[in-house]
Computed example of a mutant assay.
Amino acid sequence: MKTILHKAGSRGYANHGWLESHHTFSFAGYQNPERMNFGVLRVLNDDKVIGGKGFGTHPHNNMEIISIPLLGDLEHKDSMGTHGVIKEGDIQVMSAGTGVYHSEYNKNQDQKVEFLQIWLFPNKQNVLPRYDQQSIKGLEKQNEFYQILSPNQNDDGVWVHQDAYFNMGKFEGGIEAVYQLNNKSNGLYVFVLYGELYVEGQELISRDGMGIIEKEEVCFKFKTNTYVLLMEVPMLV
């Protein structure tokens, strides 16, 4: 087993007034050659946007882009004609493929929106752009991991053009759990939304991240009530 630890305070940080963002991996003005990616996991941004503000229309291509709101409502518009709002309990995916333009704004004027923006390198280039969003509230299981993303269109959650599997879980303190990788050659990146836990003996707290490779089963012990995101991804880009 090999691991890499990214403590919350070691992330890149930007404050643009309307946007406060922490970058686990190099992004925009934060460039760190030792923090470029974890396998095909290229971007993990922890964003907060004030009321009524957001990201104006901008382009993407050949990237799988996932948004997971943690608080508030995020309004999305794109060049495919999509116009919708995602909120806490939803997940959104956009396969940029041959190219797409989109914008993201805080739907509300009176409260901030908090969300994770995650980019994965795809395993297919120049696919037809597509958009999907789903509620994942019905998938929640207490003290168990539940899948929210996979490569398979018929699985729970959304799907992507990549051999990646995302799970979330809310656990009570004192609970132990094991995550079994779907593909033994993948790695697992653990991101703590809140709480305290041990992952293979390593203590993590809110917004810490930890990458694990060469381990087919990963053991968790939860110290307090904890909310965690697991991202199982191929390590070869």
Score class of each variant (00 low, 15 high):
Lys2Cys: 04
Asn15Trp: 10
His22Cys: 14
Thr24Phe: 06
Tyr30Val: 00
Gln31Thr: 13
Asn32Gln: 10
Glu34Tyr: 07
Arg42Ser: 00
Leu44Met: 08
Leu44Gly: 05
Asn45Cys: 10
His58Gly: 09
Ser67Asp: 04
Leu70Lys: 09
Glu75Pro: 01
His76Arg: 05
Lys77Glu: 15
Lys77Asn: 15
Gly81Gln: 04
Val85Phe: 01
Ile86Val: 09
Lys87Asp: 08
Asp90Pro: 01
Gln92Phe: 07
Met94Gln: 11
Ala96Gln: 12
Gly99Val: 03
Val100Lys: 07
Tyr101Cys: 11
Lys107Thr: 07
Gln111Asn: 12
Trp119Ser: 07
Phe121Tyr: 10
Asn123Arg: 08
Asn126Leu: 15
Asn126Pro: 03
Tyr131Phe: 09
Asp132Ile: 07
Lys137Tyr: 05
Asn143Gln: 03
Asn143Ala: 04
Leu149Thr: 09
Pro151Ile: 04
Asp155Tyr: 09
Asp163Ile: 04
Asp163Phe: 00
Ala164Arg: 01
Phe166Asn: 05
Asn167Met: 11
Met168Asp: 02
Gly169Pro: 00
Ile175Arg: 10
Asn186Gly: 02
Tyr189Cys: 02
Tyr198Phe: 15
Glu200Ala: 12
Leu204Phe: 15
Ile205Cys: 12
Arg207Val: 12
Asp208Pro: 07
Gly209Asp: 09
Met210Lys: 15
Val218Asn: 14
Lys221Arg: 12
Asn225Arg: 05
Tyr227Arg: 10
Leu230Tyr: 01
Glu232Ile: 08
Pro234His: 03
Pro234Arg: 00
